[in-house]
Simulated assay, not measured.
Amino acid sequence: MLSEKSKPLIEATAPVIVERLPEIAPKFYNSMFQAHPELINGVFSRANQKSGAQPLTLAGSVIAFAQHLLTHSDSYPDEMLSRVAHKHTSLGIVEEQYPIVHDHLLGAIADDLGDALTPEIAEAWDEVYWLMAEALLKLERGLYASQANDVMFAPYRLAERTETGGDTVVLTFEPADDTPQTPAVAGQYVSLQTRMSDGVDQPRQFTLIPGPEGARRIAVKKDMDGEVSPVLHALEVGAELPISNPYGDVVLTDSEAPLVFLSAGIGVTPMVAFLDKLAADGSTREVRAIRVDPTDADAPLLAEQTEAMSKLANGTLERWTTKSEEGEHTGRPDFSALGVSPDSHVYLCGRLEFMQEARSALVDAGVPGQNIRYEIFGPDMWMLHDDAARTQKA
């Protein structure tokens, strides 16, 4: 709970810091990496640093947390904290790294605001940061303790690679040692540590898709401008990589509500995992999967999704193709006209623009925002904006 002393100071300065975030965030990261260059090796994505998305997201999450405290003094933004905690644990973030972020983030704010940042204001933001840090650390301790092992990453060996649609390769990894394995829940992801040509390890998250017992199976779409996906596409059978325990909180709800899985391209991966789980459980829930691809040749995991759907008593698969007439529908769907019932639980995965468009249309069509869940692999400013909007409307 934010102290009464700090509330007016945070309320007065939050708008200024939000406006200055594009200048504060780069200062924060540049300062931190100069002092701790080891953090770029295996923890932070260089691609996200170049785009400027990661600095804005981390700094912005502190602001979003503060904004929530101003209007909800007796609660925390649980959804945002859970999403961040799962991402942190998948990267192996530890408690000792929180003071580092604190010092350089608050230092960047002080450097940017100059004399306007009085000791009293600095103390108020210090309180906000540590309230958020303690909330995250509590969640992260619980997540680490729930694992079947006490390691951040375990070695896995590539056992099989197969091609699927959309310039995507399916990689199946098997354990390379006897580290106890944590079972994954459908919809969860793992982080892979990939060694770059300059010797720096770069982490990326990938949804786990159904595979042999004990294996970690993922689908990787090749990004020609990316740093990691071309390396993963070039892996040969027998190659070893460190892989994290499974994490992620966008999983199936414990409910009998109708399900709608809406995906585009490689965003189908969690949907395939969900369908496989439902089929294995003999679920009788109403399940509607809607996928959008350019063509059949660009449709990753289409055969796996179709097979899993065929095992469900009340499942339907609707296909939209934007560059051919191979699907039941041609072009992009009008999300507001899909007839999704308000009591449905909707899951989205695809490019950010696709999910934003779909979510906005569904909300306008009467589906409650809290019934729509999504996963973004990368800095998630959308969640921060969405959480801030909910706070302002409360």
Rank of each mutant, 00 (worst) to 15 (best):
H68K: 07
V170M: 11
D126L: 00
P210N: 12
P212N: 00
L338A: 02
K311A: 15
T172N: 08
T118P: 04
L384F: 02
I376S: 12
M196Q: 13
A135F: 11
K221Y: 02
Y156P: 09
L21P: 00
H86T: 07
G107W: 05
N245W: 08
S31G: 04
V250W: 03
V128A: 01
P212G: 02
A47S: 14
T164I: 10
H104E: 03
A35R: 09
M1F: 05
G366P: 13
R157N: 00
E318Y: 08
F261T: 07
T295D: 14
L136N: 10
F354N: 02
E318I: 10
M32K: 09
D178V: 05
G92P: 09
D198F: 03
G350R: 09
N41F: 01
M132K: 11
A176I: 03
L252A: 10
G369E: 11
I376M: 10
K5H: 12
H345P: 08
Y144T: 06
V84S: 15
K393N: 09
P8K: 05
K87Q: 10
S341E: 13
A215Q: 14
D387N: 08
D111W: 07
K323C: 03
H72D: 01
Q356P: 02
L171K: 08
D380R: 06
Q97S: 03
K138V: 06
L69S: 12
V62M: 13
I209Y: 04
P22Y: 12
E375H: 11
D387I: 10
A133M: 00
L312F: 00
G199S: 02
V228H: 11
M355I: 06
K50N: 05
P270Y: 04
L275P: 04
S229F: 07
A159T: 06
A388Y: 05
Q147R: 15
R20G: 00
G366W: 13
A25R: 08
D364C: 05
I372P: 00
T168K: 05
S90G: 14
D254F: 15
A389R: 06
Q97F: 03
L171Q: 10
A159D: 09
H104R: 02
D78N: 11
P203H: 03
V43S: 07
M383P: 00
H72I: 03
H385V: 15
L58G: 13
E375D: 14
T172F: 07
Q34W: 15
W130P: 06
T306Q: 13
P55G: 11
N149L: 04
V268W: 09
E140N: 14
T89K: 05
Y76P: 01
V200T: 13
A289V: 00
L139N: 06
P294G: 01
